[in-house]
Design a protein around this nucleic acid. Structure first.
Lengths: 289, 289
DNA sequence: CTGAAAGCGCTAACAG
DNA sequence: CTGTTAGCGCTTTCAG
């Protein structure tokens, strides 16, 4: 140990990884890092892996399944102990490779569907239902929807499906929808609500695909002098910190993103059997519904 | 290649890394992932490394130098081609290890100081000066400051130093300051401004340590009925997307975070000589100053 | 229980 | 230019 100290010796983990059977690497491919949601999950994963002496390697797919496939292929060359992905929908090639690789697979943030191995998240469909029900119970009847591209973000699509179901079950007309073929952002939420209100001025509530979009809608209302929730109620999804501090806190659904990352990482560390963990979510009653 | 196809052979990059001289890994230690700033840098780095067939490995230091040191030590065991860190201030042990490791070192988001090797960012001190000057030129004279912990976030501290310098040079009294010993957040900005206004109701402008804090202050004004910028001007730092879409766009300084990540990664890929790259910043004239 | 040696799956150098 | 082989620095097994 004296020699270690004087020479500044650091064990070579590459050599260690090659020699040993179990891999010290865990690969994570997220759709985006601009969205704080994935950054939160990543943090939870990194934190837990660190305690377990594993190392996180990561890449960003930009919401493109083909890119996710290429990145997973590249990741598998590192012989990771596990590959973590967002959601349950992946290219056929991605699934095939992962099955062949024989490493653990963790699919995060969604449990509506059939997981490959481990799934840690919550039901987006149920979240959409809960949101719709909350608005209906509060007495809103002419409820619209403003959302971003659900082709890319299938989790948002599942929330929308749940939302539509519940409106139908409540005997309400299908919502007027403004679905924008773009990534979610505050700016798009603003534009989307303005467009929807221009078409359907009689709406009394709008459900947004997430908090970014909802905040854009809320800011539009503030500027256009639309009383919230008197004239128009607004509901988002995610429970972003900033949405708790707007003049009126946003009514939304808070998701345990950090916890999802931590649990997924722990299951991998423990080499737990295949399972689906429902981390649930929490309705946050703000002041906008 | 037919056999490769049928057997699903994937080259083992761990073995490849061990056998070859140059390392395919680049290590990145960021202070936080909750802050979108670091996520943006990380994205730029990951994107560029991917094109160069390198793999990013990362860890989160939670703004603790001792933790950064431990993480760098762990990272060096992977024999990375480069280690990327935020800022120029690091524990003595961190610097020593990095020097001994002989890998490239990239210090990001700050160029006010002496870099170890590569530095890619902008001058926070100058940004603070530019912000103060902008407010002074707009006619504000009783300018306050609301900030978060500058012990942890030395870049915010440098902006504050530049801000103070310029106020002094303009012959103005030192600003009333509310510096909170916490991470930046929208909520803390809100609390901070309320506290500062209670102590110094005659302020006509407030500079915030970043956009998160500034948005909190702005929301406080909206709720408390303080006219912005008539009664109180507000300026932030970072150029967050959301701050462009508030009822009044926030006056702030936009930083090229993505570009910083990309340039740093490219310099590493090119094995460029030690240098400091000033990516600059851009004053965004919103409607709050 | 300690110490020696055989790989892990590649890369790179070298001989043919 | 192609084909062979000696390591890269560990872990793990096996003999002493």
């Amino acid at each position: 140990m004296a020699a270690v100290e004087t020479l500044g010796y650091v064990p070579n983990r590459i050599a260690g990884a090659l020699a040993s059977t179990g891999s010290p690497l865990v690969a994570i491919v997220v759709p985006s890092l601009s969205n704080i949601v994935f950054a939160d999950v990543l943090r939870g994963v990194a934190q837990t892996l660190e305690a377990g002496r594993r190392q996180a390697v990561f890449a960003v797919s930009e919401y493109e399944p083909s890119r996710e496939e290429a990145l997973v292929a590249a990741m598998l060359a590192w012989r990771p102990a596990a590959v973590m992905l967002a959601g349950l929908e992946h290219a056929e090639g991605t699934r095939r490779m992962l099955r062949a690789a024989g490493c653990r697979i963790a699919e995060l943030l969604d449990i509506d569907g059939t997981p490959q191995d481990l799934a840690v998240g919550f039901s987006n469909r149920t979240a959409g239902r809960v949101s719709a029900l909350h608005m209906v119970q509060r007495g809103y009847r002419r409820i619209g929807y403003v959302g971003h591209d659900i082709g890319q973000d299938t989790r948002a699509g599942k929330r929308l499906a749940g939302f539509r179901e519940t409106l139908a079950e409540a005997g309400l007309a299908p919502a007027s929808e403004d679905i924008r073929a773009v990534r979610s952002s505050v700016g798009e939420g603003r534009i989307g609500l303005a467009a929807l209100m221009a078409r359907q001025p009689q709406l009394d509530a709008v459900y947004f695909s997430n908090d970014d979009m909802a905040l854009g809608g809320y800011f539009h209302c503030l500027e256009a002098g639309i009383a919230v929730p008197g004239q128009l109620a607004i509901m988002g999804f995610n429970g972003l910190d900033i949405a708790r501090h707007t003049p009126q806190p946003l009514t939304t659904i808070e998701t345990p993103r950090d916890e999802i990352g931590r649990i997924a990482a722990q299951l991998v560390l423990d080499d737990a059997p295949p399972q689906t963990v429902d981390c649930g979510f929490r309705l946050v009653e703000g002041a906008t519904v």
